[in-house]
Simulated assay, not measured.
Amino acid sequence: MHDDHSESGQMTRKKFLIVTILNSLITLIEFLGGIFSGSLSLLSDAFHNLADSASVVGSYYAHRISLRPQNKKNTFGYKRAQIISAFLNSLFLIIISAVLLVEGIQKLFKPEQINGNLMLIVAVVSTVANLLSTLLLSHGSKHNLNIRATYLHLLSDTLASLGVILGAILIKTMGWLFVDPLVTILVAIYITAEAYPIIKKTVKILMQASPKIDCYEIRKDLLNIDGITGVHHVHIWSVDENSIIFSAHINMNDMLISEAEKIYDPVAKLLYDKYNIEHVTLQAEVERGKKEDLYFEKKTDI
C-alpha cells in the first residue's frame, strides 16, 4: 500500500483535512455574504463550494479505496474507484454550471440591488482560502484524474472569486449591477469547458476504450522479435489513467513451452519501455488464428 505522505502527488490526510475545513468555512461565509449583499455570484459560488466540500470528501474516500490490494472479488484491484469519483465530480460540476447559467441569464435582464462593499470583502476572503486549497492539490492533479477533478473544482472557485472581486469593484465604482450575473455566466461556461474533457476521458476508461496506442505498430514491433510469426485478437484497455493492459494471441514457431517462455520477457519489456503497458497477457499458438484479423472477430475471440 502506498504511503499517504509520499511524494507521488497523492492527497494526504493533512491536505484533505485542511481543504475540507477551508471549503466548509468559505461556503458558510459566502452563503451569508450572498444573502446579505444580494449578490447572485456570491450565492452561486457558495453552492459551488458546497459541492467542492462533498467532492473533496468523495475524492479522498475514492483515493483510499483505490489503494486496496487485489482480491478474489476484484482481481484488478480498486483503481477505478478514483475514475468513478472523477466522473461523478465532473458531472456534478456541469449540472451546477447549467443551473447557474440559467439563473445568471435571468438576473442579467433583471439585475437587483447589491451591496458592493460586503460583496467585495467576502470575495477577497473566499479568494484567499480557495487559492490556498488549490495550491495544496496542484501537484497531485497532474498525475491523477480523481485529484484533478477536485483540483478543477477548487480552481474554478478561485477564478469565480476573482470574478466576484472584479464585479464588486465595478458595481461599487460604476454601479454596473449587470456585472454580477455576467460573472456567474462566464464562470459557469468556464467550469463546463474544464469538466467536459474529464468526463470524456473517464467514460472512455470505464467503457474500456483503447488508449491512444497504434496496435498495428505494436504488431510490427512484436513480429521483429525472433520466434513470433503472427499477432491477432489484440485487446488493449486502461484500468485507470496510468495502468494500461494488453492481451493478444501470438503465433510462434513450434517449440517447447519452456522455450516459448523465453520470448515472453522481451515482449513484456518492449511493451513497457515503448508503450508504457504494465500488464501483458499472451496466448501462444502455432498455426491457429494466423490468418485472422488483428482485432476481435465475432464468435472467434476464444
Rank of each mutant, 00 (worst) to 15 (best):
L294N: 01
K73Q: 11
V280R: 00
Q70E: 12
I169G: 06
G77V: 01
P266G: 00
G104Y: 00
I121Y: 11
L152Y: 00
P111Y: 05
A86W: 02
V231D: 02
Q82E: 10
D240A: 03
F92L: 12
I250P: 09
H235R: 15
S97C: 05
K107H: 10
D301K: 11
Y216H: 10
V57Y: 08
G9I: 07
L120A: 07
K79F: 15
F178M: 09
E287L: 13
L177K: 01
I191N: 02
S126G: 03
L170P: 10
T202G: 10
L93P: 15
G175I: 09
D157Y: 12
A284Y: 12
T300N: 15
I65Y: 06
T281R: 12
L132A: 13
M1R: 04
D226Q: 08
F87Q: 00
V187R: 02
L93M: 11
T184P: 06
S210Y: 04
V239W: 08
I205M: 05
G9D: 02
L162Q: 00
N89Y: 15
I114R: 04
D157P: 14
T184G: 03
V239E: 01
N146S: 02
L162W: 09
L118C: 09
T281V: 11
L294K: 06
A123H: 02
G175M: 05
G104L: 01
A54M: 09
R64H: 13
A98W: 09
A62C: 12
L177V: 03
K172E: 02
D45R: 07
R148P: 15
H153A: 13
I244P: 09
N224R: 10
T300E: 15
I114V: 01
I165P: 06
V122Q: 00
S247T: 03
